[in-house]
Design a protein around this nucleic acid. Structure first.
Lengths: 189, 189
DNA sequence: CATCGTTGTGTACCCTCGTACACATGGGAT
DNA sequence: ATCCCATGTGTACGAGGGTACACAACGATG
């Protein structure tokens, strides 16, 4: 019993959890595997995170921050003078071009919310984050549409292994933004 | 040792697997849980499906057929006289309005392909199925786009719990179909 | 300095799982 | 009729998991 008073212990466990999920998927996540990866005893992980869901929530929240920073750093997103479609397409490109393992990891955690109610609120946070940034530039219905399309595009890239084509994405996003002929769109719920 | 020569044994196991995934998620799927659900001995499940991936593949393939039948039954999809966006929106509506547990199940299996290479080809089959039906009505790039958008919309509905708004979906799909001004779109890979 | 509560550690219990394997059974080929 | 082999069954083993819990260490409080 040597190491004591390690204030970053909790953080290190989260980091380790992210690495484990990245390497072995959510299925490979256990108190023990995280403990080994973080080089802490088993009891330590169960102390900080009573359940695996708690740990997943923390991991997802932290993983989200990666994308959030990307979004926050792109100031031209909210600049009314830029081409929104191009901005979003570039954003996706930047994200997908980064460390692919990290991307898959973030998406796996994100999608895990489908079956794990505990993760839902965190996944929703992510959506709202981006929504807010877009709110000043389009109506709510279009914002939702853009999010859906971006999700779908990412999914397609990750599932089929196809390369991300920024020009194609830009064109599509543009099509969604340009409302064709003033058709009425139901408001977002 | 009573029951013998049960030619539908394999099929019953697949059905049971689908029920198990529906009830407890993929994480709850095991040779044992399936065996219990199908009311067959443990050895029987391991005999027919050496690995759980094998079983998942069979389950996903069968689950896909549900949607495939929906698509196949909608002949107006390929009729050039109909509004494609409306047809697709209605198709989604029909699917999402059905048994919600089944929908979540199909999507969970579909998304599981992200991390399980064994499922990739099966997920791809699904995509191609729908693609073929759409091929006669739009160009490949738009087809891909429609699939991405539909995926994104479903994801949004399932993840956020928001209600599916068919009018909204119809409008969006329409925006994607109407190519704005002859912009060049990179071909699908 | 004594005490207390938070934080960290080691271990043991019991469960479930995948896998392996020996054995049973009966249809079909010869 | 006999044999073979695909199919089906029962059981045991070892790995790994969540959880619980007693104990250790140490900062804070007085």
């Amino acid at each position: 019993m040597v190491r004591r008073y390690d204030p970053e212990r909790r953080q290190r466990i989260i980091d380790a959890a992210i690495r484990v999920v990245g390497a072995k998927g959510i299925a490979g996540l256990s108190h023990r595997s995280v403990a080994a990866e973080a080089d802490v005893p088993l009891g330590s992980t169960t102390y900080h995170f009573k359940t695996l869901d708690d740990l997943l929530v923390a991991a997802l929240r932290q993983a989200n921050e990666g994308f959030a920073e990307l979004v926050a750093g792109r100031e031209s997103l909210t600049d009314p003078g830029t081409d929104l479609a191009a901005e979003l397409a570039a954003l996706l490109g930047e994200w997908l071009a980064g460390d692919r393992a990290g991307v898959e990891l973030e998406y796996e955690l994100y999608l895990a919310a489908l079956r794990r109610p505990a993760l839902r609120p965190v996944a929703a946070e992510w959506t709202e984050n981006v929504s807010e940034r877009l709110a000043s530039r389009t109506d709510p219905a279009t914002t939702r549409a853009l999010l859906a399309l971006m999700d779908g595009i990412c999914l397609q890239v990750l599932l089929t292994g196809a390369a991300y084509e920024e020009g194609w994405a830009r064109e599509l996003l543009g099509r969604v933004i340009r409302t064709g002929g003033g058709a009425t769109i139901p408001p977002a719920t």
